[in-house]
Every structure is written in structure tokens, then in C-alpha cells.
Design a protein around this nucleic acid. Sequence first.
DNA 1: ATTACTAACTTTCGAGTAT
DNA 2: TATACTCGAAAGTTAGTAA
Lengths: 217, 217
Amino acid sequence: MHRSFLVLYELSKRMKHRSGRLLISSSELGECLGVSQQTASRYLSDLELGGFIERSRGGRGQFISLTRKGLDVLDGVYLNLKTFFDEIGTPILIKGRVVQGFGEGAYYVKEYSKSLREGLGFEPFFGTLNIKPLRPFPFLEKYVVGEVKGFSKGGRSFGSLKYVSAILSSSGWTEDCFIIIPKRTHHLSELEVVCEHGLREKHGIKDGDLLQVELKV
Amino acid sequence: MHRSFLVLYELSKRMKHRSGRLLISSSELGECLGVSQQTASRYLSDLELGGFIERSRGGRGQFISLTRKGLDVLDGVYLNLKTFFDEIGTPILIKGRVVQGFGEGAYYVKEYSKSLREGLGFEPFFGTLNIKPLRPFPFLEKYVVGEVKGFSKGGRSFGSLKYVSAILSSSGWTEDCFIIIPKRTHHLSELEVVCEHGLREKHGIKDGDLLQVELKV
DNA sequence: ATTACTAACTTTCGAGTAT
DNA sequence: TATACTCGAAAGTTAGTAA
């Protein structure tokens, strides 16, 4: 979240919908934001350079539309504010597709096995399911229910893990699971799920399948 | 919308709910935001000074909760993003209470009467209903359906007006109406509604009554 | 009308440090 | 541990102006 959000947001306020297009001049935008025309012009040029917007010159200003990247910035903020303002108990759902992990999941679950068993209350399956969400998803740290302390082994250091409780589901089945969050990670782009069972085998899951994760809050 | 939003938002991300309280140190916050401890400390002090947060020192940091003012900043952003991301056709509802206008509504409607009649397609009632929304409401400019040009009369200048089409309702009745937006206004805090009929008389509306405005988008 | 460059100005930041 | 002050350095802003 950097400053560019404020400008993107100001643009989005003036668009009826995410797929819309906006005609605005740099001086108008400057007025909206309380900065000069020159500064507004630089803002737009920076946003374009960063891949957040696309623009084309029109006679009375410039036509602006948001790129996927720009929309995702706004969507991430929207989803976080939604969890913040929604009534307690409103389910938090994340939809995503199964992706190929780096193959390290099994290795790590094995290494952390003892600690995880104590924390989770069951023997975790030796492997993780990696899920790539379709949209940005809320910041998960606030839902953390436990932590596994880091350790060193064979000259290699294993950092602390936090985990969030969730329910994984697809058509016809539901499984309790945990989402693993390496302690020193700021921007998670995939969810790493551990479970008591091998879900790929048990439910015939393969890469690309669409799953739903519901956070237990 | 100024920069303080970014810090408020970062705090809200770490709170489970709007009524929650957060324990965080200035250096942790600095890390989240990518700034130094000193800067984060100043951010918090500025937010407190501005009335956006309340805080109290704890041993390992400070307890932070958001004030009504701070929540309204976030809520305003949330509502705008909601209209931006919701499917087209999702109704946009604003609930608010009738308040005493400055008594100028009748005067202005009279002055603008001719132009309004042309734009709205009916003879507007000589008076406006002022509504104070309960929560922040979305930026309305993007829903403008028409404009009434400004003019000068008797040495006094009347600025341009824009208007948005809406449906006003309460238990048992519904009325088509328009929300009037003075062209050079940036921060509307009340809605000024014009209608074909005198609603205070027709429906027995009095100050403090709760009404709902649905925007026609 | 616009957009956007450069140079001077202003604000914001953070290392050092006090509390 | 914390928070938060001062002040030199860095970053951001805008007036003037070109295109």
C-alpha cells in the first residue's frame, strides 16, 4: 500500500463501475486532490508507468481506465474494509485454484511435523496444497490462531510459522484445514494449506481445480 | 482524502472488527508501512491530534482504537469502493434523518424554478428537504443526470447546479425526487432533495424522521 | 485547450538521542 | 524495553514555461 492508492481511489470514485472509462484533465484531478496540475500530471504518469492505469489523450483531458493491477490494489483495500465493517460472523470466503507448489511443502511439513502436531492437534499430511486466489484476499494475520516456533537443524534455519483456521471445500466435500503463514512474510500471494489428509488423493484434486476457503474467525 | 488514510487503513487491517482495539508498537507499525519508527510514531501522534484514533500506552506498545471520525474516513472509502466493485444494478441506498434546512431551500428553488422545470420535467415544490445521512455516503457526481446553468440576478450570482435522480421512501410511501448538488461543492454533508410535491405536508414528515434514498444509477 | 519538463521551493523523513 | 524530540538530508511539490 503506497501513496498511489490515493490517486487510484480518487479516479475510481469518479467512475461508475470498475470496467468504466473516465475523461478527466490533469488540472481537474489536481483540484480533486488538492494539488497542482503539474503534480496531478506526474501522478498519472507514475500510475501509467507502474501499470496501474491506461490512458489516451482526448481533446479535453485524458481517458483513463484501470488495469487488472490497478483494480487489484483497490480490490484488496475493499476486501479488507469489508471484513472490518461487516457484522461479526459474516463468512470470509476466498476462492482460488490449486497450483503446483514448489514441492517444498512436503519437506517443510515433515520438518515442522512435531511442532505442528502439537499445535494443530493432529498429525498433518506430509504435503501442502497451494491455492492461488482469484482475487486479492484480506490480510490474514489478525485471524492467526497459533504459532509454531522456528528452529535450526543441520545448519539450516526454519523460521516461525503462524496458522489460520479454515474450512476448505468444493462441490461435494468439506475439510477442516489450516493456512500456514511464514512469520516474516508481508505479501502472501498464495495460500499454503495443511490438512490431516492427503486431499489430492482423497478428493481427486488436481492443479487448476477451483476450491473455496472459508476462514474460521 | 489525505495521507492519514493510509495509516488508518493499515491499523484497521490488523483489527478484527471496527469496535476492536489493537496493540502495536511504533516500530512494528513502521515496519508494516515501510517507514522508520520515528515516522510511525509521528503518524500516530498526528492521527490522535486529528481525532482519528485514541490511544493509551501499554508495556509493549500502545493500544489503539478508532474514533467515530476515524471510522467515517474508512467507511467513506469502503462505500465508494463498494459501488465501484458491486455488480451494476446493485441498489445504492442512503439512510438519513430529516433536518432543518437553512430555510434557503424555498428561496433557491424559486430562483432556479424555471431552469429546474425544464431539466426535471415538472414544476418543483418550492422548498427542499434536507437529509443528514447516518453514515458517509458515496461520491455522487458520477450519477449526475443533468445540470442547471448558473445566472446572475439583482447583483447576486447563482451558481450552476447538478442533480442526481433518486427514489425517496419511508414506511408506506415512495416518491421520485432529485438530489441537488451545487457545482462547486466538494464535500457534501447533507442531501438536499427537491420533489414535485411538498413532502413535509403530503407525508407528514418532520425533523428527525428516518428516510431512505435510493439512487437511480 | 491540453500535458509535462526543469529548477527552485517546501515538506517530509529518519539518524541520533533524550526521556 | 517504549515514545518522541531536533535538525540535516532526502523526497515531493509547484511556478514558469515549452510543446
